[in-house]
Structure formats: structure tokens, C-alpha cells
């Protein structure tokens, strides 16, 4: 075989840079779509709150950033799962379970808070392992397995906590406890809460990893065409298991952030419906329920979109009932517009 035939060496550098430019443009268009939606929503709420002016303040935007952290962290995992064509409905319940387990470990076992937090992340990983293990071994669709997880994890959280909130004693909280999610962080130059920076750094890492690693590429390949992935010798069950465990770890991280957000409370009823917010964020960011698509940047924009909606409705003084109707409508409209736009481009 003469694959290394010199006459067929790679194309000239001019053509190469042109190609890269085309790729960049395509990527920009993909990302800008959700971004435009975000700008429209921001414009809308700025208009609705023009009298009070409470929406477009630095403080409020810092608050929005903090409110985005939990959804954003969970959405990193969900993005990976949805790229493989799967879904995880158990995220909200797993987050609640994590807060309860961490709180119980500190209050009842007397574990140091940092150790308990690490255990919390691992609990998320175990939830993912259960989901992924059942999906690959039973061959039942992720929707059903994780629907089961949604009930089971919530039930476990209630069981461990005897269905009441578990408060961590103030003496057990280390000094940094409240600062991680402080809306106005302590050295001023941080601008936003440390946890927001953690999310941003993690996102950057995951984004690069998805594009540049073998496993990341397998996620896209399985979501795009599972049969092809199998034919090309990819061990599909193992990769799927990996994605659920990885995503579970992110859910665990979201869980401990939620625990911090609740100021050290293990609440078995918290994060109810979080999974739907997360899924909406991924889809608004360009992800597809059919798999093969989705980017971390898009997902982050989607998360911000969701936070801005929730926050903006409060500032605009929209009643709770109208909020739900409005948010639902806007999600459907945003995703529909995005699909139409993409169809037009093809």
C-alpha cells in the first residue's frame, strides 16, 4: 500500500488556512444563533424594567451569574449525554440526594466539610454509574431508566433525611463556606463569585476535551450514528457508561454547589424540575435530542438564557403563573427559531 505516496501529500498552506476560516465561520454561526436569542431576551427585560432599572445593574448580573452556576454545572454533563443521543431525567433528584448525603455526613457522621463535599461529587458519579450501567446492560432507553432514577434518587434523598431539611451546624462550616457563592466576592478583582470561575474553567476544559480527545469524538460519533460507531470498532456500551459516569460527576458537583447555595442545607425537595431547565438550556444552545450535536459554549449561553428569563420575570414583576406560561412559550419559540435558521442554512 502506498498511502505515503509523496505526490499526494497534503494541500498547500493557502488552501489550508482558507479551510480553517470556513470552519471558523461555520462555528461562529452555530454559536451566534443562541447568542442572538439571549440578546433579544435581555433587551426585552431591559425594556420591561425601564422604570425601576433594577434589571440592568452590576449587582443583578452578578446575582444572575451565581444563579446560573448550578444549572450550568449540571448542563456540562447533560451536554455530553445528549451528544451521545441519550438523556438524563434524574439530574434534579440526584442533586437533592447529593445535598442530603453531604449534610448527613457532616451532621451525623461528623465528617469534615471538604471531605463530605468530595463524597458528594462521588455520590453523583454513583448515580451516573447506576443510570449508565442499567442503560447499557438492560438495553432500555435512557428516557425510561433515568425516569426511574428521578423517582429512586428523590426517594433515597427523602429516606436519608427522614423527609425534612438537614441543617449543618454553624460550627462545622469552615470560614470560606459562604464566600464561594457570594454575589459580591471578596477580593474585588474577582468580579463574580469564585464558583462562577470554577464553572468557566471547567467549561473551557470540557469544551476542548470534547473536541480534542478520542473519547469526546466517540461521544459525537455514537450520537450521530451508533451503528457506524459499532462498525468502526468502538466499544459503544463502555463509552456510554463513561458518559453517564462523567456526567454524574458533574451532577455531583452541581449538587454540592446547590448545598452551598442553600447555605449548608440538605434539602430532599430541592432542585425539583432542575433536569428540565438543564435539558432546555442544552437544546437552546444547539443540542439535539437525537444526538450528535451540541457544544459547551452553546450550552452555557442556553443556561444564561434560562437564568435571565427567570431573573428578568421577577424584576419585571410578572406573576408566578404568568412566568411559567411565558418561559414555556419562549423556550419553544427559541428552539423553533433556531431549527428554522439552521434548516435555511443547509
Amino acid at each position: 500500500m502506498g498511502v505515503e505516496d509523496p505526490e499526494f501529500s497534503s494541500a498547500s498552506s493557502v488552501a489550508k488556512s482558507k479551510r480553517n476560516a470556513a470552519g471558523t465561520v461555520r462555528w461562529l454561526i452555530g454559536v451566534l444563533g443562541p447568542f442572538l436569542g439571549l440578546i433579544v431576551v435581555i433587551g426585552l427585560f431591559s425594556f420591561l424594567t425601564r422604570d425601576t432599572g433594577s434589571f440592568l445593574t452590576t449587582y443583578n448580573w452578578r446575582a444572575i451569574a451565581v444563579q446560573t452556576v448550578v444549572v450550568g454545572t449540571a448542563a456540562l454533563g447533560m451536554t455530553m449525554i445528549m451528544i451521545t443521543g441519550g438523556i438524563d431525567l434524574s439530574v434534579g433528584s440526584a442533586v437533592a440526594l447529593v445535598t442530603v448525603v453531604v449534610a448527613c455526613l457532616v451532621r451525623d457522621v461528623g465528617m469534615a466539610v471538604p471531605v463530605a463535599l468530595i463524597c458528594g461529587v462521588l455520590v453523583g458519579g454513583v448515580c451516573g454509574l447506576l443510570n449508565g450501567g442499567l442503560i447499557t446492560s438492560l438495553g432500555v432507553v435512557p428516557f425510561i431508566i433515568t425516569l426511574g432514577g428521578l423517582k429512586v434518587f428523590r426517594g433515597l434523598a427523602k429516606w436519608f433525611s427522614s423527609s425534612t431539611a438537614v441543617y449543618v451546624p454553624g460550627s462545622a462550616k469552615p470560614s470560606w463556606f459562604g464566600t464561594l457563592l457570594a454575589v459580591e466576592p471578596k477580593p474585588d478583582w474577582l468580579i463574580v463569585a469564585p464558583a462562577v470561575w470554577v464553572l468557566l474553567v471547567l467549561s473551557l476544559f470540557v469544551a476542548v476535551w470534547l473536541r480534542r480527545s478520542v473519547l469526546g469524538r466517540y461521544f459525537y460519533a455514537i450520537g450521530s450514528n451508533e451503528a457506524t460507531a459499532r462498525l468502526c470498532g468502538i466499544n459503544v456500551p463502555v463509552v456510554k457508561l463513561a458518559v453517564y459516569v462523567l456526567a454524574g460527576l458533574f451532577t455531583g458537583l452541581a449538587g454540592i454547589l446547590q448545598f452551598l447555595y442553600l447555605d449548608g442545607t440538605g434539602d430532599p425537595t430541592t432542585a425539583d424540575g432542575l433536569e428540565l431547565q438543564v435539558i432546555a438550556a442544552v437544546v437552546i444552545g444547539g443540542g439535539s435530542l437525537a444526538g450528535g450535536e451540541g457544544t459547551i459554549l452553546g450550552t452555557l449561553i442556553g443556561c444564561l438564557f434560562m437564568s435571565v428569563l427567570n431573573n428578568g420575570c421577577v424584576h419585571a414583576g410578572i406573576s408566578n403563573a404568568s412566568q411559567d406560561v411565558m418561559i414555556g412559550g419562549i423556550i419553544v419559540a427559541a428552539v423553533t427559531l433556531d431549527r428554522l435558521r439552521r434548516k435555511g442554512r443547509d
Binding site: R217, S224, N225, T228, C232, I234
Partner: peptide, 18 residues
């Protein structure tokens, strides 16, 4: 066809032999 439509040509050719 055994092609993953969302991936690039490069990714498809190298799939499973990265």
C-alpha cells in the same frame, strides 16, 4: 452507508483508528 453525518470527513475516516 456507515457514516456519522454530524462529524467531519476527517473524523469519519479516522473513526475507530484515531
Amino acid at each position: 452507508l456507515a457514516i456519522a453525518p454530524h462529524l467531519t470527513v476527517e473524523a469519519n475516516v479516522m473513526l475507530g483508528q484515531e
